[in-house]
Amino acid sequence: MAAVLTVKNLRKSFAPGFIPRRKEILKGVSLEVEPGEIFGYLGPNGAGKTTTLKCLLGLVFPDSGILTLFGRPHLSLSARQRLGYLPESPYFYDHLTAFEFLDFTARLFGLKKEERRKRISALLERVGLADAGRTPLRKFSRGMLQRAGLAQALVNDPDLLILDEPLGGLDPIGRKELRDIILEQKRQGKTVFLCSHILQDIEMICDRVAILVAGRIMSSGRLRDLVSEKIEFTEIEISGLKQEELAGLGESLAGQEGRILLKVVGEDKVDDVLSLVLSRKGRVHSLLPRSLTLEDLFLDTVKSS
């Protein structure tokens, strides 16, 4: 199947201030998003994620590179018709209520009156703003604006949903609801492209990720391939034993109030530690197998660049 979104060798530089010394923000970014997947575009602040999106949406013009949406040039209106976009820290018109704002957005897509009314009340319900439809947007909190932003991105029932830092301003419940909405899109066969510098809550649902650091993609692929499920080491917290008795079994990480935190590599060694503790009538307080997480990978990539 043809890719929903492609970026080929995208370069973009800005010339800040009056001195025409250009700063290259994107240094040849390439990526492809397949239909029906949740694609995570991850990277630290200032890596160039938002700039990539702005190029795709026609808000800024790239220096070079080829961008397509649904196999068409990215600026084509018919591609936009099938797209939903939630900008970073969204801000909307002060003078409109949530309902009026969504109605305005839906009109741009050419939705008929009856259709608009139905869709908007369903969406307000969906994003948890059912009671705030008649409230002016200027009275919205940061998290409520984020929800309104999500609703406007969904107003045309988009085949591709692009979210920039969607967790911003959301409380834990909001984050859970957002995750549900993203998964629901996927269930309906839609594609989701999300940018984030926060991994928590996001990494679990991405089918594929690309990690952008300083304008270059450092690694990309299926989450499963990037992050091995192999257990790297096990952390065991025990008490009732002396440090010296554990020599050779593992690395002692910390100790408090007679407890020892051991980093043990290999399953045999774990068994050894447990039987030793048993024979000495010591106690095991916790046992935690650790595998490489996306966060570790992320930190490694950023460090090595």
Partner: peptide, 14 residues
């Protein structure tokens, strides 16, 4: 300034 134009220009709007 308020960046409402970001959302607008991402819609089918020239």
């Amino acid at each position: 300034d308020k960046k409402t134009i970001y959302t607008l220009l991402s819609k089918p709007l020239r």
